[in-house]
Simulated scan of single mutants.
Amino acid sequence: MRKEIRPRKPSIWFEVARRAARGLPGVAEQETADGPVFRVGRRRLAWLAADGVSLVVPIGEDEREMLVAAEPRTFAAAGHANGRPLMRVHLAYVDAGSLARLLAQACRDLALRRVKRSRASTAS
C-alpha cells in the first residue's frame, strides 16, 4: 500500500512572505509536496524550507554574506542550487519590508537571467 504524501504546512509566519510576494508582478504561489513555492513563470523565486518557518531565496554571494553577518538570527546560508547561492530567511524574525526588498531583488535577478539566456540563444 502506498503511503500518502501530505504537503508540508507553512507556519503562521509564512503569511509575511505571501504578502511580500503578492506585490510582485508575475509571481504565483504553487502548492507542492514539499510545501508552497513562489514562481515567476516556471522558475522558482522562493520556497518554504524544510523547517516550515524559513523561506529559501536565491541571492548573490556578496549580499548573502553581508546579510548573514549583519543578522545571523534572521539570515543563514543554505547552500547552492543551479549555480546560485541560497539564503534561508527566518520568517519570525525578518522585517516585512526587508523581505519584500529581498524577493523583489530575486525577481529582478530571475528576469535578468532570462534576458541573458534569450540573447545568448539568439546570438547563436
Results as ranks from 00 to 15, higher is better:
V89C: 03
K9P: 04
S118H: 15
E63K: 10
M1Q: 11
R18V: 02
V68N: 07
R119D: 06
A120Y: 01
G97D: 15
E61F: 08
Q30C: 07
A50G: 06
D109K: 01
N82I: 06
W47E: 08
V27F: 02
L55K: 08
P72I: 03
W13F: 10
K116Q: 13
Y93P: 00
Y93H: 14
D109N: 14
D51L: 10
E31H: 02
R108N: 02
P72M: 04
R73W: 06
R8G: 00
Q30P: 00
R19T: 04
G60Q: 12
S124V: 09
R39Y: 00
T122A: 15
I12V: 11
R42Y: 12
L102G: 05
D109H: 10
I12Y: 01
G23W: 01
A69M: 12
E65W: 13
V27L: 03
D62V: 14
R2W: 09
L67V: 07
E61A: 15
A20T: 00
A69N: 15
S124Y: 04
G83V: 01
R19G: 01
P36C: 05
E31A: 08
E63H: 13
E15M: 07
Y93T: 10
E63V: 07
A21N: 00
R6G: 00
R88K: 12
W47D: 09
F14A: 11
D109M: 08
V94W: 07
R18S: 04
A100H: 10
M87Y: 03
R18P: 05
A70C: 06
D95H: 15
A77C: 00
A104F: 09
A92Q: 11
L99R: 07
G60Y: 05
D62I: 13
V16F: 05
T74M: 11
A81W: 13
S54R: 13
V27A: 02
V115S: 06
R44A: 15
V27I: 02
R88N: 07
S98A: 14
L55Y: 04
A96Q: 12
R108Y: 05
F75Q: 04
D34W: 09
D51V: 07
S11R: 02
W13R: 03
E15A: 14
S11C: 07
R18G: 00
A123P: 01
L102W: 02
K9N: 05
Q105S: 15
P25H: 03
M87A: 06
C107G: 08
E15K: 11
S11F: 07
R42A: 15
M1D: 12
R84S: 15
G35R: 05
A104W: 08
T74Q: 14
Q30T: 15
A123R: 13
S121C: 01
L91I: 07
P7C: 04
A49Q: 09
R101M: 04
A50V: 13
A69V: 11
G97L: 12
G52R: 03
G26Y: 09
S11G: 13
S54C: 14
I5M: 04
A106P: 09
L110C: 05
A49M: 08
R114Y: 08
A100D: 01
R22V: 02
W13I: 00
A50C: 03
G41H: 10
A46P: 01
R114Q: 14
D109I: 06
A28C: 02
Y93A: 12
L102M: 13
I5G: 00
V37F: 12
